[in-house]
Write a protein that binds this DNA or RNA. Structure first.
Lengths: 218, 218
DNA sequence: GGGCGTAATTCTGTATACAGTGGAGGGATG
DNA sequence: CATCCCTCCACTGTATACAGAATTACGCCC
């Protein structure tokens, strides 16, 4: 694996996990020595992160981890809705019903109430997303959704889903999978709309319950 | 201006114009010497182009200008429709009516039948897009649309609009601007849908009329 | 004559050296 | 004591040197 890829993956992970909170200044020499790579591959990693929107160049000498607030989350979900509804429509039109029927069965079996099965459930969602992308067969759409999902990783950490929300999410995904399997584009799109609406509501209530995570206050 | 920015801008322009047709192999040393920069900034430019999807790394030693065929154009317009309809809805909700009323008046004055006014008209469209982006006030949406529009530059070159299409495009844009000025989100979204449908149809007919531009046949 | 193996060349990936610029800190002056 | 200017330091941007890998060409053997 290339050093630039390692630096990108590691920085991405640390930003998503919160080890590098918003506002953190990412100096090239500092991060390069910290990650054990040279400045050249680290610069490439920083440019990729900037292209994703995870870091911003405030001045030519200050690249910082980008902030993400409640308004950003709303904006992100607006784009997400536009793209995922389109993906659901395309998947319903072109997808293989058997694949999504099987996914629906997997969702039916999923019971993410247990803590250990939470990761399994997120993996199942990732499989579902991959199946939708494959069925939509639109590289531009997949690329745009990849960026959105990258940011979503940060949101998921900010607002940890509670068990009730996870159970509801299972049911919502199952409805979407069934709609795609049935080849009903509008049903799939509207089920996606509902799912994202509930997901956003859950995130916003979780964030308003918790005090907003502050970064540098002593 | 940084050398990496110059390299990126120049390569982007040459790809969009067609000076670097799809399939062209972009060797680092060759392009670096050709553009008069070193390999380091050129590598950054190449990575940005790859992030945009304009070049692909077929193998670690072959980065080529990505191909774009009729199916790609259809896919691109699917994503474009999803994003621009959303942008139109948001602009109708949050935008300043005066701004879009003024733009509507500008479209009313525009008469791109003359060859010299073609560039002026494209500039007016760019202004309109910028106004929609500003009114939508959604950075994620703007970023996603930026990528789409980058690819659209190539399509526009492949299928040169004829005067009738340009005149129709003026009228369509004016309808969208009026809908946004009136604060009617659904009308703005549907007008955008119609506009993109006609634009895609025009592109596809133009491409089926012209034989598909072949690259390496002697 | 064809196929396989080896060697050489070339290209990428990485590290480091160098230059320029911006900022911060300290000293001097009003 | 505050403010302004000058100097120095640090950090980015760029170029180049070096190592490793892959591809290609050439030669030998079958």
């Amino acid at each position: 694996m290339r050093a630039s890829d390692r630096a990108y993956t590691e920085l991405l992970r640390q930003i998503q996990v919160g080890a590098l909170p918003p506002g953190t200044v990412l100096g090239e020499v500092e991060q390069a020595s910290r990650l054990g790579v040279s400045r050249t591959p680290l610069r490439e990693a920083l440019r990729r992160l900037a292209s994703d929107g995870l870091v911003v160049q405030q001045s030519p000498r200050m690249t910082v981890v980008s902030d993400i607030d409640v308004d950003d989350i709303r904006s992100l979900f607006e784009v997400r809705r536009a793209l995922e509804e389109t993906a659901a429509r395309l998947a319903a039109r072109h997808g293989d019903p058997a694949v999504f029927a099987a996914l629906s069965a997997d969702f039916a079996r999923a019971a993410p109430a247990e803590g250990s099965e939470r990761e399994d459930y997120y993996a199942l969602i990732a499989r579902f997303d991959a199946a939708v992308d494959a069925a939509a067969a639109n590289d531009y759409l997949t690329a745009a959704l990849r960026t959105v999902r990258t940011h979503l990783g940060r949101v998921r950490r900010l607002a940890r889903d509670n068990p009730e929300r996870l159970a509801a999410s299972v049911a919502e995904h199952r409805v979407i999978a069934d709609a795609i399997a049935a080849g009903d584009p509008e049903l799939a799109a509207h089920a996606t709309h509902l799912h994202l609406h509930h997901a956003l509501t859950s995130v916003l209530t979780a964030l308003s319950a918790d005090p907003a995570p502050v970064k540098g206050t002593p």
